[in-house]
Amino acid sequence: MARKRRKIPLTKRLETALELPDGTLCRSFRIELSGNRRAVIEGCRRILQYDQNCIRLDTVEGALCFEGDCLRVNCLSGGSAVVAGQIATVGFEGE
């Protein structure tokens, strides 16, 4: 049985072909980490799970999971979220 290939969106393929920065033509998410205390995520759609030890965010490219202690969402607006606390691991879960 032939394995089904994952379809790459046209805009993404164009971006790659034209060597444009990520997020120019298609929506993508971006994480900016300040040590292990703070993470700014752009391209966040919603919060999937929220507790002190785990915060899961739904992004345009799948789920993003933060694990650690005393985690909290400082701000969530306009597709951006700020996660603060003691971040131990950052995990990606594909679509």
């Binding site: 919060i47 002190q52 005393c70 909290r72 969530l76 607006s77």
Partner: peptide, 17 residues
Amino acid sequence: LTEAAKSHLPLSDSRRE
């Protein structure tokens, strides 16, 4: 939190205890 963000209601310093 998600609904508030969609409705442009800025919630700040949210935490879970």
